[in-house]
Computed example of a mutant assay.
Amino acid sequence: MESRAIARIALLAAVIAVLGMLPSIVLPIAAGVPITAQTLGVMLAGIILGPRHGALAVLLFVFVVLLGAPLLAGGRGGLGVLFSPSVGFLIGFVPAAYVAGLVMARLKTLPVFAAALVAAVVGGIVVEYLCGIIGLMAIARMTPLQSLVATAVFAPGDVLKALAAAFVAEAAHRSYPAAIACRS
């Protein structure tokens, strides 16, 4: 792997970490899973870096969190997060970034904004929610319907994050066309 790719992977992992420093909102209906800005970083990792490097950036972030760095919203980190209701969402970061990158790569014929929006919704919302629902069912002992309802609370904010990711991708592509890995 070339040093430029490693730097981009590290940079996107850092962006996800910084987004965790923004204040989060904890809703009781979602078993304590917070609303955070970090899924925006996950969407951007896949869209900008592509499937493989995007997933590696998120994997790097998750690895650092599991080592104990308090980079998750609310200053959480360490192995204890694997036993919290948000574990499905955390583990889902990796496949979400991969799928977002894969969708972005497959939609080369669409304009960047449209492709990035679809990629963010499919990877950053659908895949992320699927993993989150499974985590809520396993850890919080919710029924599938309860976990679906709890996860639906995040939808309005995540749609806004998907739009933001598409705007960022479009702006990055306009200012530096090689910024989007699958478009260069």
Rank of each mutant, 00 (worst) to 15 (best):
L12I: 14
G124L: 05
G77D: 09
A14T: 13
G157L: 07
G75W: 07
A114K: 08
R52G: 10
G157E: 08
L82E: 09
A5G: 00
G135W: 03
Q38R: 09
G80Q: 12
R141M: 12
K161I: 06
G124H: 05
P28Y: 12
F167T: 11
L19C: 06
P51T: 10
L60E: 02
A181W: 01
F61V: 04
V42W: 00
P23E: 14
P111S: 11
A45T: 12
I47D: 00
A105T: 14
H173W: 05
A69D: 09
Y176G: 02
G124C: 11
L163N: 05
G41L: 00
Q38C: 12
H173Y: 09
S147A: 15
C182M: 14
F93Y: 15
A140M: 11
V58M: 04
M142R: 06
V65K: 03
C131Y: 00
V65P: 02
F154M: 12
A97S: 14
L60H: 07
A120R: 00
P34A: 08
V65T: 12
L136W: 03
P111E: 07
T109R: 07
A10Y: 03
A10K: 01
I48W: 00
I91P: 02
F167Y: 15
Y98V: 03
A69Y: 09
G92Y: 04
A171E: 11
R76G: 11
G74I: 14
A179C: 07
I139M: 12
R106E: 13
V42T: 10
L40V: 13
